[in-house]
């Protein structure tokens, strides 16, 4: 009866996985268990969100990172034999999931974006993107536990119910990992609202110089938009911070309107904008792949089109 297990670094992410797990637990008549780090007082909250069991991970010495929990988690998984193990797809937890899966000799569906249950076998049929997002792969994990890492936001968090009962189990510390944490530099990341923005302007390699970002800023201000970029702009040219990079390995946006300025549309980028309601692209190359996924494509020089567009918008929006 070890059932369905859930682990994530982030609190909200954990609630999302609990919600996904709880529905499965009901259908499959299994127990739901969750791992809790650092904040033991959250145990009741997790129980209210569907957990039948909370495993409390012991505090770590200062020179250890969360990966030190791997032997501990793999150890109790061997003992309790869960059927399903969902892990939040943060970078750290992805590494942890792969190492746990290897010690359990089981399969792992990375970045699982959704799943269904196979009627006959009751196995999870899990979906993920491959080839930079060009294709959807469906997999079944034929070994136990069926493991998946699940990105934040793939499921909604559920609501807390009062009066639920659950068990809290304190785990004893694992032997220290040979990997030592010597220093930590937190991110000077600016928080961006790209992921939630209603309108996104994205700049790509079609822009010739950094100063041309001004054009994008003017358009963004007019439309109340957030500005993102393609990978070369942040990774190679460093015109924009990394956290504004849109795509498979960056941020996925889901605005009402996306406008690409000089974006050619590499598949990895298109994967990150696929959920936009309306996609509009301005590019001088009429064969640019972004036009295939656009609702409106303007074939033309971005330096001519954007000023015209700004003028036209000002008039139409009475600004």
């Amino acid at each position: 009866m070890a059932g369905i297990w859930v682990l994530a670094e982030d609190y909200k992410h954990c609630l999302e996985l609990l919600n996904a797990g709880q529905k499965l637990a009901e259908t499959l008549d299994k127990q739901l268990a969750v791992f809790l780090m650092q904040k033991p007082d959250r145990a009741d909250d997790f129980i209210a969100h569907g957990a039948d069991r909370v495993y409390l991970l012991p505090a770590l010495p200062e020179d250890q990172t969360m990966e030190a929990y791997i032997p501990l988690i793999a150890g109790i998984a061997k003992q309790e034999q869960p059927d399903i193990f969902f892990i939040g797809a943060s970078l750290r937890c992805k590494e942890m999931a792969a190492r746990i899966a290897a010690s359990l000799n089981t399969g792992l569906c990375s970045d699982c974006t959704g799943f269904t249950l196979d009627e006959e076998s009751q196995s999870l049929v899990m979906e993920r993107l491959i080839f930079g997002g060009a294709a959807v792969q469906k997999v079944i994990c034929e070994t136990l536990p069926q493991m998946a890492t699940i990105p934040a936001g793939a499921f909604e968090a559920g609501t807390a119910l009062s009066g639920r009962d659950g068990q809290v189990i304190e785990l004893s510390p694992a032997p220290p990992s040979p990997v030592k944490l010597i220093a930590k530099k937190s991110n000077a990341r600016q928080t961006t609202n790209l992921a939630e923005a209603r309108v996104v302007i994205c700049v790509g390699r079609g822009l010739e110089k950094e100063a041309d970002l001004e054009m994008a800023r003017e358009l963004a201000e007019l439309l109340g938009a957030e500005i993102g970029c393609t990978r070369p702009i942040s990774e190679e040219l460093h015109w924009m911070p990394e956290e504004t990079c849109i795509g498979l390995s960056g941020i996925k946006v889901k605005p009402e309107l996306y406008i690409g300025l000089g974006v050619s549309g590499q598949i990895q980028h298109l994967t990150g904008i696929n959920e936009a309601r309306v996609i509009c692209a301005i590019n001088c190359d009429e064969n640019a792949p972004i036009f295939d996924v656009s609702n409106y494509g303007i074939v033309g020089d971005v330096y001519k089109v954007v000023p015209q567009l700004i003028a036209e918008l000002k008039q139409a929006l009475h600004k």
């Binding site: 089981t106 792992l108 060009a134 294709a135 959807v136 469906k138 997999v139 079944i140 034929e142 070994t143």
Partner: peptide, 11 residues
């Protein structure tokens, strides 16, 4: 294999 691919389809 632990994972069996059931299908690969165009996104």
């Amino acid at each position: 294999p632990c994972l069996r691919t059931i299908s690969i389809s165009k996104a």
